[in-house]
């Protein structure tokens, strides 16, 4: 049960991480905030993205033997990136949930 908790935490943090990485790009930022004048605060988004990527790796290691955790983590990156790509193509506004207004560059 504890292992399942760690794995769920790993899934969530990988998704968040990939979402923030995607929002670093101006083109994706415009998809999520079409009417917004400024651009993304790339420093903050990259910092959060990297931090949560590390956190997801820690969660995987807490759940499984290191050899298994490495595989889970790599595969989760693929799932998370694909999920974010699909969200951006179909429901980009959903990514606003992980990106409050202060994530924007005042530009």
């Amino acid at each position: 049960m504890i292992e399942a908790g760690w794995l769920i935490a790993a899934v969530v943090s990988t998704m968040l991480s990939m979402g923030w990485f995607a929002l670093c790009y101006q083109s994706h930022w415009k998809q999520v905030f079409p009417g917004h004048a400024g651009g993304p605060n790339t420093f903050l988004l990259k910092l959060l993205g990297r931090g949560f990527l590390l956190l997801s790796a820690v969660c995987c290691l807490a759940a499984d033997h290191p050899s298994m955790a490495a595989l889970v983590w790599i595969m989760l990156l693929a799932v998370a990136a694909m999920t974010v790509a699909m969200l951006l193509s179909r429901r980009p506004q959903w990514l606003r949930l992980i990106c409050p207004s202060f994530f924007a560059d005042k530009g």
Binding site: F21, Y25, H28, L77, A78, A81, M82, A85, L88
Partner: peptide, 27 residues
């Protein structure tokens, strides 16, 4: 990593999907 535009012409959207599926699961 994150680019898929299904509303574009089939040539562009299939290239997007080809790239994204190739890149995200590269390892």
């Amino acid at each position: 990593f994150f680019t898929f535009r299904p509303w574009k012409h089939v040539l562009r959207s299939s290239l997007d999907l080809h790239n994204v599926t190739g890149v995200v699961a590269l390892p």
